[in-house]
Amino acid sequence: MWLQLNINFSFSSLLKESMHKLPLSVVGLALMASFTTVNAEVEQHDLGPRIEIPESSGNSCVLPEDEMRRRHPDLLKHDRILTLREGIREKTDGHNLDGSLKQCINCHAIKDDNNNYVRIDNDRHFCVSCHKYAAVTIDCFQCHRDIPEGSSNFHALSGHKNTDFTSITPGSYGLTVQDMANIAPEVSSDDK
């Protein structure tokens, strides 16, 4: 960071001098050179938040990774029409359709430190890990189950049924965003 500032400083002073003395092409060269230096010196992690893509438990996905990144919305959208409206639930070879959200979740479900599956309100959830980075708010999981069938029922929105919310004063130090989500899930459901 210090290095970057330093270069920027020298670059701007150079620019001032060059306005009078140097032809424009030389200024351009100097500008390019200064940027190259910056890029070489700045570490990758300084460039912004990075996506931690969790490992999946399946052997292979329905398409290569780079294609899945680009095409998974199309697959899901195409096959949901086939399954719901036409009743096609399998490929001709008897396997699941490519766009089976249930199968996505079965392979890509992530467990937390307590060996429970993380729900959709957790940043470590497979779908959320990318969608949050890309500012994609898609509501698949308002209806669809976000963890494999038959697994833990813990959920941040419903798992604190026994909490006595009357003892919590809104605005007090102890009230977290999560507490608010528990008290009024309707209000906070869209901006997690």
Partner: peptide, 17 residues
């Protein structure tokens, strides 16, 4: 009428539908 959680895998259902 409300946000649902823990739906059945075979019957997705949710608020607003």
């Amino acid at each position: 009428h409300e946000t649902l959680t823990d739906q059945s895998t075979t019957t997705p259902r949710g608020k607003g539908c």
